[in-house]
Design a protein around this nucleic acid. Structure first.
Lengths: 159, 159
DNA sequence: GTAGGTGCAAATCGTTTGCAGTACA
DNA sequence: TGTACTGCAAACGATTTGCACCTAC
């Protein structure tokens, strides 16, 4: 196998950036919830670009189509989605939580401590070393959390 | 195979569980702040056992000796201490932040998902790779969280 | 003496909850 | 039809801030 120049891969959205009506209904029904237009709209928003959205951002986007929607609805549904692992919740420092549609592939996060922006990455060398560390400690590795914090290109320029 | 000089170090540091008056004054003065009894009390509390305390816990403990102290003082000083890296702030989920006197050596954690045991380790290769990843993403790295989860030697045997 | 520190209370911010009305199955 | 869902507003908990009074230097 040919090794790429860098072992770090920034995940590009090779994933579909929208969910079909059928997929949306399936997700909601799997949680034993009723399919409402608010919930559909929230899932549609989450699928766009598969970014990491704050509850506020999701609210704003859904609000454009359903001006009557309330924050409570957004939070309540995000909580359910998180419980059922359909979305993953990322919290950084004191910043508002960010939500992303559960990724199909494993990845870690690099977050900007100033603006909260999150970039996904995958680094095979680090993953391998984690296995090695666990083995040296006599552990059977079952999972990990790796979050890098720093200042993103934009915020560095902005200073 | 014989394990070569491993890059993974299990930390065994024996830290003092109290700070001397001189050390406390030194810390405060390095931040260009005035030495008040409130600030001394907060540092003394943080040194006890070197646990991870919430602001509330620190407040409670200091409050026993200085019933007049306010939350604002605790938070304001913790913020300064964090800025100057004398304490590290750990935030988990939506839970209140926890503060610990900055350990002399950086370390990460490997936790057993069955018995909860935590082993500290330090792996320079991983640390270096994290720097590399951040650089590739254009970020200035300021910190990270690496938690490995798995089953410890004892629990593996026990099965 | 004076700049900086303090306690208090009110303000803020993200998030949660109670409730009365609404809509999906 | 009935129960789950919704929007609203108020409640919440952690943290921050404004301000008049103190205190270390």
């Amino acid at each position: 196998m040919k090794l790429p120049r860098s072992q770090t891969q920034v995940s590009k959205s090779v994933k579909a950036d929208r969910l079909t009506d059928v997929e949306i209904k399936k997700i909601i029904r799997e949680m034993h919830l009723k399919v409402t237009h608010q919930r559909r709209a929230i899932l549609e928003v989450l699928a766009v670009g598969r970014h990491h959205f704050t509850a506020q951002e999701i609210f704003d986007l859904v609000h454009k189509r359903f001006p009557e929607i309330g924050f409570a609805t957004v939070y309540r549904f995000l909580k359910k989605l998180t419980e059922y692992k359909f979305v993953s919740e990322v919290r950084m420092g004191g910043l508002p939580a960010r939500y992303e549609l559960a990724p199909t592939h494993h990845h870690d996060h690099m977050s900007c401590i100033e603006c909260g922006k999150i970039v996904e990455f995958e680094n095979y060398a680090i993953e391998n070393l984690q296995e090695k560390v666990a083995a040296e400690l006599g552990f059977e590795l079952t999972g990990h959390v790796l979050e890098l914090y720093g200042i993103c290109p934009d915020c560095r320029k902005g200073k």
